[in-house]
Structures are given as structure tokens and as C-alpha cells.
Design a binder for these strands. Structure first.
Lengths: 222, 222, 222, 222
DNA sequence: TATGAATGAGTATTCATTCAT
DNA sequence: CATGAATGAATACTCATTCAT
């Protein structure tokens, strides 16, 4: 069973690697098998079909990407510090996640709408993204209880915006041939999320959005 | 020539319709031809290959989606009012754009990286998205010159966040079987963009993010 | 009519040119039309179908190739001299004919056996080749009547061998990427036909087949 | 492996059978598969493409045709007798080889000039034909060493003519709907090759070319 | 009569899935 | 269970032919 689990891991990892490079539609069973070091037949011992395999791979990736964001449950530090750590963490993961980001969108078109497997995928993604949002929301709530986030802020909505902005930057970055856009990088993520955080605090002067360096403004395209 | 252009329109529209429903990977030339009311051979009179046709369709869609956002160039109203109109407009387009939103991501995996057509797609998308950001930036600049946006705000960065948040909400909404998440709807878009706008203004009290209705908070899934 | 005939010539010539380069199977109506400077529709005003056009082109070529061999009807010179002139002429045409030689063989497989057009082609080729042989036979007969060809030689058979050898050399030459085989060239043709001629004469010493140059023997590939 | 080789044989044989009847251009993968008793997919397990399959089939056929000509290595008989046996053998193979003879020429036009596969074909044919010529040359050399072929004969050139004549007769015969030309038959081959052989010997009186039967002369079409 | 855009039947090729070993 | 050769349904693309202008 140990070995079986190991194989499943290798298979999913192989599918993700290829899917990230060539796109899911061009990810073929032959290649997955070879990259995973198993035979094509073995793939069907673990997964009923190609669709199923790829859906599991996508869910595996998205979940892993979310889990990569640490809980920052160290209770010895303040909510504000934990949020700062969260921002650092999300920014630090940015480049790696960009690699495989499009596969989530592609997976939706792999399976005919209305089928069981299609629902399985959408439900899975929904759950993961909601969990993601919840995680951020709980940190915001902590910060709010400590007074660094204003009382009147709708935490649910802010958490949703937080995730949306991060995903939007990932989405945008996945189109670029080479990080041409300085705003869609690790630094850009830090700037954006900090802006969101600080817009929810009382302290106006910390605002990360202020023009600090004119040179930076010029560098950023349009 | 009139007729030829008409046909091209019908072909691209047909490709988009099918691509939005089934995904680009499952969008076949036979179906496009039938849906467009032309023969398969005619498809190849206009486009060199399936890849080319689909890429043009995607660029056509994205460009149309951006152009749908009005310039709001009515100079008789203030920058602030124009931004409000922009927010209304983006929110109003949300549901329709969601339908075809995934195809942009899917297109990236239709074409082998490194090919000319792949670059054509990425360059096209890049240009469109930069134009989009520029449009928003110019309205923000107007508002800034009128004093409703603070002087110290990095307009480039804010415009980038603005677009990222919108795209992130579209991305998220494209996963849902039926608008289950109240934050990823027309209303959610309005709330999110308003938050971004108001976080850049001097007037604290307008903040759309304040908890106004407790019921609303409960409705929105964590 | 003058103009029409001119067009037909251009069409056949275009078909031959392309057919010689790419092979008949890869000779398409589009290309023929463009090369001939007419529209595709015009092709069908002159020929019922692609098959018909190509068959006419092949017959046109083969006939022209045969007619290129001069009658050498100058009665002021001896039969022997005429035969020598014939050999020179056939050798001189060799390189040009090689270019289009394969099309005759290819044409046979263009049309389904048993059809009218297939018979039309085969009959046409047969007639042409028989006429070719007859031409040579009549010169041999003249030489025989003058005494330079032995009385006991079967002229029909010798003429057939004569043509077969020439065609065999053409056939062989059409396989070579670049005249690598010194025996399948203008010089080789001269040597081969001279051998055949002299083997039919009484005078042994003229035999072109004798090893005259050792270097030549070494040059010729096994 | 035994089985795989068996399948390859069946595939090539099927391709040749159909190619000989309909021409290579009209030889389709579906038909080959059915005739070989395998699925279409299996064809592609053995050969990369239709072109490759057909080229291998042609080389297989030509090689087999050459190998069919026995070495006549029985050292107990004289070179002269061996040459007579060779002539008998080539004549005996004539009718069967005629069936598939055109495919060699057709193959040249299946593949775009300048491609690797085109060179593969031409090189293969070249090698086979040179081997063929070499075989004949060695028998002539033996006969020469025994004194039945004159010392002054250029064996290379004679061997080349020998092959060319044989090929020329095959070429001619491949155009005929039904062996209408008595000179392009088994008997004609024997007559032609004997003539070539005897023209290289010292003994004039054996000459096969002499008119033996007037009726025969009449039979042979001009 | 000349044109060339539209047509769609015809084909090579791919690749998920199966199953005998 | 693992394997990988065999399978054949599915699909992009070509090109001879037609016909409205």
C-alpha cells in the first residue's frame, strides 16, 4: 500500500509536470506513464480513465498550492505580524504556482458539463478555494480582534477580494512569455496584498500604495 | 468583401459559442462550420488551421470584452462619477464575460510553446490587457487631478490591482455550477471595485466595505 | 482558336513541369492553373477532369520526346552515318528527358485499370513507343541494305533492344540524386548504343566496348 | 518477435499487392491494414507514416526481385553455362516482376524531394541496382577469365547495358494491357540478353540475333 | 467565356482503452 | 498485478470539382 500510494503520487506529479508545460489537453497517457516510470496499463489500475486521472491531478495541485500557504498559527506573534507573514508566503509561492496555474481552468473543459466527474472537479475546486478564503478570513478576524483591522470591515468580502487579487495576478502572469510586467511578480503580489491589508487598517500612513520611488512608477509598464 | 467579413464574424462567433460551452479542446471544425452555416473547407479559406482560428476567436473575444467597457469620455461629469460608471459597467458585463472567460487560459495550451502562433496569442492577450489597464489608469488619473484620489497613490499599481481583482473574480466565478458564491457576482464585483476605489480616496466614511447588513455577511459563504 | 491552342499548350507544359518535379500524384490543379497563368475553372473548360489533363500531358511529353529524335532523313549521307547521328541525338536528349521520365510510369497508376481513360493512356504510349522503334528499325534497315549491318540480324529485335536499353538507362538515371553513375549519362548512352550498333556490324575492330581507357574503367562504379 | 516479423512481412506484402494493382498513389492505409489482417493502428506501430511504409515496401520488392536472380555459384559448371542459367533465370522472373515494376518509379514521387525519406529511397534503390550490376559483372568476369568473353570488353559497361536492357523491357512491358508485344516477354528477354552475351564472345556463329525464323520476324510488331 | 470562392467527400494520423501474456 | 502491443473511433485537413458572378 505504501508502494501503491507512492506510485499514485508519482503519476499525479508526472501528469502535473506535463500538464503545466504543454497544457492538459496535450497531456497524453503515454507520456504520463513514461514520466511516472510505470506502464500505461498501470495508470488504469489506479484511475478509471484519463479524465479521472487529470481531474485528480488538478485537485491535488490546487490543494497543495493552498496548503503551501502556512497557517501561521504561531500564537506568540500578533495577528498583524501573521498577516505580514502570510503576504510574504503568498508572494514567495507566486512564481512556482504560476507554472501550473492554467491547468485549473483547463480542467473545466476536459470533462463534459453535466457529468459526474465534472461536478466532482467543480465541487473539489470550490471547496479548496473556500477553504483558502476561510484561512485568510480567520487571520483577518484575529487582526480585527486585536484592533489592527477596523471594526467595520466585512471580513468575508475582504478575504474574497484578497484571493481574487492573488488569482488575478497569477492569471495575468500565466500569459507572459517572460516576466515582462513588473506588477505581476513576487514584488507585485507583495505590493497588492499589502495595499489590501492596509486599506483595512486604521493607520493611514503605512499605506504601501504611496508613491515612494518615482523610478518605480516609470519602470512599471503603463 | 462585405460578405466575406460577415462570414468571418459568424465563424468566430460560432467558435466562441461552442468553445465557451464545451471548452476549446472539444471545439471541432465540423461543429464550427455547421454552427457558422458554412462548409468545413470555407473555414480553411479564412484560417490556416484550427489553432489559428481558435486563437483569433479568443483574441476577438477578449478584445470585445475589453471594448465593452466604455471609455466614459463624457467630459461633463467628474472623474469620480466616471469611475463609478466604470464600476457599474464592469459589474454589468460580468455575467456575460464569465461564460467565455476560461477560453483565454485554454488557448494557451492549444498551441505548442515556442511556436509563432503561441507568441501571437500571448502578445495579443498582453496588448489587450495592458490597454485595459491603461484605460482604467487614465480615469484614475483624472480623478486624482480632481482631488478625489489621493496624490500619493501609485496609479499604475492600483490599475493593475483593479484589473487583477476583476479577473480573479471572473476566474473564481467560472468554476461555479450556479452562482453559489454571492461574492462572485455582479454585486460582488461592484463591492470589490468600490472598495478598491474608496481605499484610494481621502474620504474614509464612504467606505463600501463597512458592514452594513449582517444578513449579507451571513449569506456570503465563508 | 489560336489563343485557345496556346492556352492548352501552356497548361500541358505547366502540368509537365510540376509533374516532373514533384511527381504526378502531387501535381494539383491549383498549381497547374497558377503556373499556366489561367484560373482553375479554365482548366475544366479544356479538360474534363484532372486525370484527363494529366494523361494528355504525359502523352504530349512522350510524343515530344520521341519527335525530338530527328528523322535523319538527309539522303545524302549513308545509313551508317545516319545511325551515328541518331546515337548522338539520343545521347544529347538524355539529360532533358530524364527530368520528366518517371511521369510516364506514374501516369499508369493515376487512372483505375479497366477504365476508358486508362486504355487511352496505354494505347497512346504503346503507339508512341512502337513508332519510336519503327523509326530506328527503318534506319537499321537502310544500313543493312548498304551492307554495314549484317544480313542475318533481326532488325525488329535489335530495334527493340535499342529502345529498351535507352529506356533502361533513363529509368536508372531517374533514381540518382546527382549523376553519380557515369554509365547513366550522355556518354554512357553513346557507349551503350554504339555497342549495340557495332555488335550488328561485320567490322569487329570498331567495337566501342573495348577497354580503351583504364582510367575510365576505374571511374565507372561497379 | 517471430510474430512481429511475420506481421511486418504481411504488411509489406499487402502494400505491394495493392500498390502493384492500383498504383502506389491509390494505396490507402485502410486497405493495407485490411489486406494484411491487422488494424490501422498497427501499421503505425511498425512504420512512422504511410510514406515510410510504402518506401520500405518498394525497397523490399526491388531487393527481393534482385535476390530472386540466383548467384549461380555452382562451381562445377563453366562461366558460360552460368551466364546461360542467369539469362534463363532473369527471363523466368520477367512476368512476375512486371506486375510490380512501376511502383519503383512511383515511389520517387511519393516523397517530396530533399527530404530524408526521399534520400532513403533513392539510396536504397541505388545500392540494390549497383549490387545487381555487380552480380552480373562477376559472372561476366568469370566467363572472361575462361575465355568465352573477349579480353577487350569493358565488363562494367556491359553489365550496365545488361541491366538497362532488362529494365527497359520491364518498363515497356508494364505499359501493355496484355502482352501484345512479343519482344517484351520471357522469350524476348532471353533473345535480348543472349544477344548481349554473344556480342561479347569471340564466336560469331552462335549469334542469337540471326534471323532464324521469318515467321518470328513477322510476328514481332514493328 | 473566365474566374475563384465555396464545397464536402475522402484520408492519414492520433491516442485512450483493452487484454493476452 | 504489471505490461505494452493491438485496436479503431474520432478528427484535422486536402483538393478536385462546381457554379454564381
Amino acid at each position: 500500500m505504501e508502494e501503491a500510494e507512492n506510485r499514485k503520487q508519482r503519476i499525479l506529479a508526472a501528469a502535473l509536470r506535463i500538464g503545466g508545460q504543454r497544457g492538459l489537453a496535450a497531456t497524453h497517457m503515454d507520456e504520463i506513464a513514461e514520466a511516472a516510470g510505470v506502464s500505461k496499463g498501470t495508470l488504469y489500475n489506479f484511475y478509471k480513465s484519463r479524465e479521472q486521472l487529470l481531474v485528480e491531478a488538478v485537485l491535488f495541485f490546487v490543494e497543495a498550492a493552498v496548503e503551501e500557504i502556512p497557517e501561521v498559527s504561531d500564537e506568540s506573534i500578533s495577528g498583524e505580524q501573521r498577516l505580514q507573514a502570510l503576504i510574504e508566503s503568498m508572494a514567495g509561492s507566486f512564481d512556482r504556482i504560476v507554472e501550473n496555474f492554467p491547468i485549473a481552468t483547463q480542467a473545466g473543459s476536459l470533462t463534459p458539463p453535466g457529468t459526474e466527474i465534472h461536478s466532482h472537479l467543480l465541487n473539489g475546486l470550490n471547496e479548496i478555494f473556500l477553504g483558502y478564503r476561510k484561512k485568510i478570513r480567520s487571520l483577518l478576524a484575529l487582526a480585527q480582534s486585536e484592533g489592527s483591522v477596523r471594526e467595520d470591515v466585512d471580513l468575508n468580502a475582504l478575504a474574497a477580494i484578497w484571493v481574487a487579487t492573488y488569482n488575478g495576478l497569477l492569471y495575468r502572469a500565466s500569459f507572459e512569455e517572460s516576466g515582462a510586467d513588473s506588477l505581476c511578480t513576487e514584488a507585485g503580489v507583495k505590493q497588492a496584498l499589502s495595499w489590501l491589508y492596509e486599506s483595512a487598517t486604521e493607520i493611514e500612513t503605512k499605506n504601501a500604495f504611496k508613491n515612494r520611488a518615482k523610478s518605480h512608477t516609470k519602470d512599471s509598464k503603463v
